[in-house]
Nucleic acid binder design. Structure first.
Length: 806
DNA sequence: CAGTGAGCGAGCTTCCGCTTGACTT
């Protein structure tokens, strides 16, 4: 859009200024006078592309998504007037709207080309209303792919706005507003201020809380897994080595020992060899959700990071739209993919196919995510952009390639006298097909599950056991969600949309309901029995269990809110609630249900439970009594205080303030024990003297610290623990920080200092920092030179601090 | 830069889905 041209007039010479003004003027007139046809789409990048296809008679502009919404701070629904919505133009949309109004007034025809889904139809309807267009002459057009043919076809077949679809959107919007704006205030009263609830976020939190409880309740069981290493001579007299696993697992050490004893006296031979051909098919091209999952697994991107990199690629014209639930590819894409595959890999590698979209509630307004031009294997850009682009390219290309042909071989080794059998499974790829380009990653793949090529052996061949090992294995609880696996689960449940997956993840963290955390895990001892020759030895092995990296953990406030909501609003917290209302939205869209009726049927029972939950007196604090402190005999409680989860020693009474201590990050009100709680009262504690002053370790506003000589030294997160830190380690921290501070000072002129900072050397005076010009050696700067730099830098606007949220 | 933790009451918080820039260090 011309208004988005950013040329800095101030810094240009006068002649250039005039030229720039002329260009603005010309563009202004082009839009006003010469526009036969004004086409409005949702995204500015899309507008740019389409304008190229449509030629000079068309001006294509963007609405930047929705232009009107329910009022920001009030409910915005007149419930007693049959759920009449009160729409407003948000402050940040005023400018777009007034520009669109001007353009529309000067155009002969207005074409509205918002997406062909519920939201897009509503955008079209709002545009007609807000821009004051004539609904009977405004042309509503749609296309699912941005190709010349699709756009030309759309222009030939305009239609009117589909009011049923608009009403389905209004029902969705109002339902979400009612749920969010009626339940959230209940939480402010019953739990804590500034909390929130909603159809989507509350279920997302529930998934994480429910999963955590499964993990808490999980009792690991152990079994013994027996593997053998065999050797023998094949019919070419070559020595072969074969690793095989016993098909049976043994529930205890004694049973495993019994098998090993039998193995010691047994002989082994190959009982059977089975070879089965198989195929593997490529995954569909990316949707938003699968892109987020794979970018997380293969590139380690967070969900938000994936979206911001993808946005860059989209704006640069490298990929198609990145917020989509469709696996569809345009016929143009199918053809160019085929050409690239045939040219690069040969005809036998090409297999053109279209994938069906399985996602629940998919609206398929766009194509799948794919490269705009398949012949571009890589692009210029920063590293992340390159990596994500290549991932998208490979996935889309692979989706149009032939299946891989595999051969799975299973060798069965029998014992004589017969007891158990061992099997070795190997897989070879006979034709790589799409695997030549791309193989999909999966969550939670067992590390020793890899299948390899097996040696050439024949049925009946006798084998010797080099060794046979029985290793204790523990069952593992269901995995905690990562950002990406949560998105996958939400999509399966039909909850949330491609444009909201990333915001959902950030909302539930911003509210403090869940947090992305690591856990070091705990060492666990495994029993190992080994048979070598005829001797059985017993040994131990350790493994780390429960180690977590960047997983979503529920926090106490999330658990309390979740329990309150599931108790008071079970229907809305039901995993199938969205699926149910989506069905009704579909009925509204099909003209089979009146949207006002749907809302009123929902509202009466819902509003009743809002009133009932408010009427109950008690507040939710997660209060739990753990027992009595053996030292003082006082009762020990845990609960959610105004500032977070605490343990409390003794009851509060007039004149007696009980002791409080914060829970640690990795503790929950629900699971903390009396012993663990009592440890929390051991802070602040003395670590003895260092250089004649006492070291006191405690935990403050910014986490645990050591205080020495009235200076503070933070403990290292994930390394040090205030309850167990030793004096030696504390001294290390003190020395390290003091030395670092020494290095930080390059030159000290009193009120002016030259310092080494995170972003390199800088000058500081009166708490204001100034950048040192490139090419200047900071060590040689004199006080006068520093003053000059400060004077120059002082002219720049003092940067306003970002608004602080408390 | 290194606590708070009760209760009262003013005034504030909040939803989901479409879209991009703002904004720093």
């Amino acid at each position: 859009m011309w208004a988005n041209l950013t040329i800095n007039e101030e810094s240009s010479p006068i002649i250039l200024k005039l030229v720039i003004r002329f260009i603005y003027f010309a563009l202004f007139f082009k839009s006003y006078l010469m526009t036969e046809n004004l086409v409005i789409v949702e995204s500015p990048a899309k507008a740019k592309t389409i304008e190229k296809f449509l030629g000079k008679d068309y001006t294509v502009v963007s609405s930047f998504g929705h232009i009107r919404d329910l009022s920001k701070n009030k409910l915005g629904i007149e419930i007693e007037k049959g759920f009449k919505p009160v729409y407003e133009i948000p402050a940040d949309k005023q400018k777009v709207v007034s520009e669109l109004k001007k353009l529309a007034a000067g155009a002969k025809n207005v074409w509205i080309a918002s997406d062909e889904d519920r939201e897009g139809e509503a955008i079209a309807w709002h545009l007609i209303a807000v821009l004051g267009l004539d609904a009977s002459t405004t042309k509503r057009i749609v296309f699912h792919e941005i190709t010349k043919e699709a756009i030309a076809k759309a222009i030939e077949t305009p239609r009117a706005v589909n009011m049923d679809l608009v009403n389905a959107q209004q029902a969705r919007r109002l339902l979400d507003r009612i749920v969010g704006f009626e339940i959230s205030p209940v939480l402010w009263k019953k739990v804590q201020p500034a909390l929130s609830a909603g159809r989507v976020q509350s279920v997302a939190v529930r998934l994480i809380v429910d999963r955590e409880r499964e993990i808490i309740g999980f009792a690991p069981e152990s079994a013994f897994r027996v593997t053998g290493l065999f050797n023998g001579l094949n019919n070419k007299s070559e020595e072969v080595i074969l690793k095989a696993e016993c098909t049976k697992k043994f529930s205890n050490e004694n049973e495993a020992l019994k098998l090993l004893e039998r193995c010691a006296k047994a002989s082994f031979a190959i009982e059977n060899i089975s070879v089965k051909p198989g195929t593997r098919s490529p995954a569909p091209p990316f949707t938003t959700s699968t892109l987020q999952q794979e970018a997380y697994r293969k590139l380690g991107f967070s969900v938000a990071q994936t979206m911001s990199v993808a946005q860059k690629l989209y704006e640069a014209g490298r990929i198609t739209y990145m917020r989509t639930d469709s696996t569809n590819l345009s016929s143009l894409a199918l053809n160019t993919a085929r050409e690239v595959i045939t040219a690069d890999y040969g005809t036998e590698y090409s297999k053109t196919r279209q994938f069906k979209t399985h996602a629940k509630g998919a609206q398929e307004a766009h194509e799948a995510i794919r490269p705009t031009y398949f012949d571009k294997k890589s692009i210029t850009g920063n590293n992340n952009e390159k990596k994500l682009y290549e991932l998208i390219w490979k996935r889309a290309i692979a989706s149009q390639m032939a299946e891989a042909k595999t051969e799975k071989t299973t060798i069965t080794i029998g014992m004589n006298p017969a007891a158990e059998v061992f099997t070795a499974v190997g897989e070879v790829i006979r034709f790589d097909g799409f695997l030549r380009v791309y193989s999909e990653s999966y969550d939670n793949v067992a590390e020793d599950d890899e299948k390899t090529l097996l040696p050439a052996v024949a049925k009946g061949m006798s084998l010797d056991a080099v060794n046979i090992t029985a290793t204790q294995r523990y069952t593992t609880p269901p995995p905690r969600y990562t950002e990406a696996s949560l998105v996958k689960k939400l999509e399966e449940l039909g909850i949330g949309r491609p444009s909201t997956y990333a915001p959902i993840i950030s909302t539930i963290q911003a509210r403090g309901y869940v947090a992305r955390e690591d856990r070091p895990g705990e060492k666990r001892i495994l029993m190992v029995l080994t048979l070598t020759g005829s001797k059985i030895t017993k040994s131990e092995k350790t493994e780390v269990a429960g180690k977590e990296k960047a997983k979503l953990f529920p926090k106490d406030i999330g658990i309390i809110v979740n329990d309150f909501l599931t108790a008071n609003f079970p229907d809305i917290l039901d995993y199938n609630f969205t699926a149910g209302v989506e069905k009704e939205f579909d009925e509204i869209a099909g003209g089979d249900l009146e949207w006002g009726k749907m809302l009123s049927d929902f509202y009466s029972p819902f509003h009743k439970s809002v009133d009932e939950s408010l009427a109950r007196k008690e507040r939710m604090t997660g209060n739990r009594e753990l027992g009595n402190d053996p030292a003082t005999g006082l009762p020990v409680f845990v609960k959610m205080s105004k500032y977070g989860p605490v343990v409390q020693l003794g009851e509060a009474s007039p004149g007696n303030k009980p002791r409080f201590a914060n829970l640690r990050r990795d503790q929950l009100l629900e699971t903390i024990t009396l012993e663990e709680a009592l440890v929390l009262f051991s802070l602040p504690r003395s670590l003895g003297d260092y250089q004649g002053s006492e070291m006191i370790v405690s935990s403050g506003k910014f986490g645990p610290y050591v205080r020495h000589n009235s200076k503070f030294f933070s403990l290292k997160r994930g390394v040090d623990d205030p309850y167990s830190i030793t004096a030696e380690r504390a001294i290390e921290l003190i020395v390290e920080k003091l030395e670092g501070e020494k290095k930080k000072v390059i030159n000290d002129f009193g009120e002016i200092q030259v310092l080494n900072g995170r972003y390199g050397p800088y000058i500081t005076m009166d708490k204001n920092n100034f950048r040192i010009p490139k090419g200047t050696d900071p060590a040689t700067l004199t006080k006068e030179e520093c003053l000059k730099i400060i004077e120059k830098g002082g002219q720049k606007k003092k940067s306003a601090k970002p608004a602080k949220k408390k």
